[in-house]
């Protein structure tokens, strides 16, 4: 299962439940429980994929909205967290696309004036490495976060993203190589 990786021992949060929770598709109380159990982990993934915490929180809410709309069609044989992560990554890709459009509009509107940066209190204290991860293509960054933060195996990542396992391995290798180049290692 997704919770068996030893890399989680290093982090205080988010800790997965000891036994996998069971949910009934379409059940309102179960979805509320799912939200409570998985929100932080989904938010963690999204923070790594989008620009700042408020955007990540907005994307997390959007993720659960989309999940709620399709809650009755979710199949219990598939890991629910993998399903949520797939939705979250799609939301992040969408957000990045809109962000680029917004940024292009702002550049035209400002006409050369310096862009106001995000509120420092709302931006994570990020190292060069973390910033480099955030700048990777979303699918590569998502593979890295699922592998090295949540501790998924390549097979679990492949199930979550709906791609072949080889594709996951390729994305991870490309992402690591890119990071090494960017960081000069």
């Amino acid at each position: 299962m997704l919770e068996e990786e030893g890399s989680r021992e290093k982090g205080v949060l988010p800790e997965p439940p000891v036994e996998p929770e069971r949910y009934e598709p379409g059940s309102e109380p179960d979805f509320e429980r799912l939200y409570r159990n998985t929100y932080r982990r989904i938010l963690g993934t999204l923070i790594a994929l989008v620009r700042d915490v408020p955007t990540a929180e907005d994307c997390a809410q959007e993720t659960f909205e989309r999940a709620y709309r399709n809650w009755s069609t979710w199949r219990p044989d598939a890991p629910v967290e993998a399903w949520l992560h797939r939705i979250a990554i799609n939301v992040a890709i969408s957000d990045r696309r809109h962000q680029r459009i917004r940024q292009a509009g702002e550049v035209i509107r400002r006409l050369g004036r310096p862009a106001p940066g995000p509120d420092p209190s709302l931006v994570a204290e990020r190292s060069e490495l973390f910033r480099a991860v955030s700048k990777l293509p979303t699918k590569q960054a998502a593979a890295l976060v699922l592998r090295h933060y949540h501790g998924y195996t390549n097979r679990e990542i492949a199930a979550a993203l709906g791609v072949p396992e080889q594709t996951v391995a390729s994305r991870l290798a490309t992402a690591r190589k890119h990071l090494q180049v960017v960081l000069g290692r």
Binding site: K10, P14, R40, V53, L129
Partner: peptide, 30 residues
């Protein structure tokens, strides 16, 4: 595990864990 992988895991946990520990907000009305 290579150095870059080890460093990546440490960095992700260092940055993301405190932020993920924030209180869970109520679910947004659809």
């Amino acid at each position: 595990m290579s150095d870059i992988e080890r460093e990546l895991e440490e960095e992700l946990h260092r940055v993301l864990d405190p932020m993920s520990a924030r209180p869970i907000p109520p679910r947004r009305s659809i």
